[in-house]
């Protein structure tokens, strides 16, 4: 069974590109367009990995990450922060809140894929 990846990003075009990229690698992909929807889908669908944007309407990426990490039932969910905010402080904050990786936009597609693969390898 293929692994499930959830993309949470309010930028439609970015979501389209990542969606296409990861489907091509054989993952099952779904997309949420804001933080609230993202969190709901994480709880309902239990994806194996979440690609999480930070600057989003309603609930931002940090808040979603925090909520996921406080929920013991969601312990297995990997989180990759994916954001255009490139400051070191933001990165540290994301990692401190329990994100597994932090990728800065714009990213190299290969790097994103290998990062995702690396994170999903051990559990399978």
């Amino acid at each position: 069974m293929s692994q499930h990846i959830l993309i949470v990003d309010d930028e439609k075009n970015i979501a389209i590109s990542v969606d296409y990229l990861l489907r091509r690698e054989g993952y099952e992909v779904s997309v949420a367009h804001d933080g609230e929807e993202g969190l709901r889908r994480i709880r309902d669908d239990r994806p194996d990995l979440v690609l999480l944007d930070i600057m989003m309407p309603k609930l931002n990426g940090f808040e979603v990450c925090e909520a996921v990490r406080q929920d013991p039932e969601l312990a297995g969910v990997r989180i990759v922060m994916l954001t255009a905010k490139g400051r070191d402080a933001e990165k540290e904050k994301g990692l401190a809140l329990g994100a597994d990786a932090y990728i800065t936009k714009p990213f190299a597609t290969r790097e994103l894929v290998s990062q995702v693969k690396a994170l999903l390898q051990p559990t399978t």
Partner: peptide, 21 residues
Amino acid sequence: THELRTPLTSIRAFSEMLLDD
């Protein structure tokens, strides 16, 4: 910076995909 990176992200991702595949 954020506003510049956002469109750049899409541009780069699609360009790379088109180039690679």
